[in-house]
Amino acid sequence: MRKCKVQDECYQPRGIETGRTLRHALLAAYIPMGNSVSRIDRRSLVKMWLTHRFGGIVFPLLVKHENRLNKLYLRLRRIRN
């Protein structure tokens, strides 16, 4: 049998991936699952799915360009104010 890691490369527990949880959360919208997953939970699950899926690309860029992004943020805040 092919071996696999307990935690996958997206920092998810294998077999309980966030995408799968999301599918069941959507199912729970129509079938009560006992301590049902609510609308707020489902929105949070979508955000976490995106984080797990694309975080490996986004976070290294955020760290590498942190100074530039901070300057941009401060500039935008000054404009807003």
Binding site: Y11, T21, N35, V37, S38, I40, D41, S44, K47, M48, T51, H52, G55, G56, V58, F59, P60, L61, L62, V63, K64, E66
Partner: peptide, 28 residues
């Protein structure tokens, strides 16, 4: 300055923050 380590910490911080209000995320 490890971006992937920042991602990992960010993931658990977000689950922790969600768990403050939503019981579903505490077990997660």
């Amino acid at each position: 300055r490890d971006g992937r380590e920042k991602m990992r910490k960010s993931i658990i911080r977000r689950y922790w923050n969600y768990g403050q209000g939503r019981t579903f995320f505490r077990g997660r």
